[in-house]
Nucleic acid binder design. Sequence first.
RNA 1: GCUCGCGUGGUGUAGCCUGGCCUAUCAUCUCAGCCUGUCGAGCUGAGGACCCGGGUUCAAAUCCCGGCGCGGGCGCCA
Length: 427
Amino acid sequence: MFYTRKCGEIEESDFGSEQTLCGWLQDTRNLGGIAFLQLRDITGVIQLTLLKKKLDADDYKKWTNINRESIVLVRGIVKENKEAPGGVEMLPDNIELLNEAETPLPLGVIDKIDSEIETRLNARYLDLRKSEIAANFQIRAAVSGAVHKHLRREKFLEVQTPKIIASATEGGTSLFEMKYFDKTAYLAQSPQLYKQMLMGGGLERVYEIGPAFRAEEHNTPRHLNEFISIDIEMSFADDDVVMGVMERLVDSAARAVAKETEALETLGIEPIELELPLPRITYDEAVEMSNGKAEWGEDLSMEATREIAEQMNGFYFITKWPLSLKPFYIQPDDDPKYSRGFDFMYNEVEMTSGGQRVHDVNMLKERLKEQGLDPDGFNHYLDPFRYGMPPHAGWGLGLDRLSMIFAGAKNVRECVLFPRDRTRMTP
RNA sequence: GCUCGCGUGGUGUAGCCUGGCCUAUCAUCUCAGCCUGUCGAGCUGAGGACCCGGGUUCAAAUCCCGGCGCGGGCGCCA
């Protein structure tokens, strides 16, 4: 290891001892006879205090002229000092320049001027050095970790399904087309049909956290063309049961985020607390609540959802959607005008769509035809339904969006390291 | 897919409507210098920009057309 202590982890018992630190030299304030440098690593910032008369003149000059954001290794005595930021400083005997940063920087890490997200994403490696940016990813990791832990606790088996698929299965959104040797293949928009095959495979409870791709040319703060989807599928369960899994999962995630006190403080936000069960409104009620902004039988527009969000405030479910608005694999309700499909919302943002699935092969063929699809093209998908398919339900939840909510971010890109949107393929 | 808008130093902006006083504002930044307790350090000096092409005009950062790049809203969705 290059260092003996991290910048933000100097203990009282270290005072008076010699330590070695490494990190990024973020700032130099040369007052003439005394200079203050700020050394940063992932744990925090420590002040290095240089006294001109106690140092070799060349060293003083050299060390106070290092370009900011250069990598240095510093050795010296650490001590308590009430005048220093954080109450701790180091008096370096030696500063070794491990790797000098070029100047000017593509964006200022500690500048008072904020850069635009475009500039920031182009230089993400610099952007991430800001604690308030990195904090988003701490939150995201807490969410992702809690999701794995929770679903395993509820006996879900983690699976991975292919992302290269042969045909445009679900319909609806457009897929990215790609070359697969001398054939055409597509990038999967969702693991939906594979999850269902696994129900036919008798695994009963599965989950997958993986990428999904959608070739839609949208340009909004909450859409990406590559996103991470948390998907579950559960046998012998209906829509109501998987909504229960959903709310317990989100509650677990919320509790995990609440423990990230440092990240939350950096972001200046309060943790979100949930009270289970989360509210459930039917589609009919939602239309009612939209104050005339929605028409029955139509998808809820952004305008309508905003209206509803004002009355719901936070997480909630919209259940019993009209069957005509849901994909072919969603089970009709007792009244076939409705379905057992639901959406999970956070205010006006759709987080999840899910529902009970059709498990009867004949009904599935009917539903395909109703939606103008040819059942013959779906044989690989339909086969598992012929030899013992249990009733099952499931959903897909956007990890990026969930992280965005918990991090209090206004743009999903804030919570995705290297987002892929309409125009961006790099870095 | 529809629609609205934007493009000025490394970064973030003012100026554009109402063309000339723009040798282009301010901040940050970079460089040089002064300063022994900075903590948004201060002070002095210097450096650096009108997306590209065409047009209108005596005159274009400013008006018009085209291109390129980008953003927002809607649709669709996670």
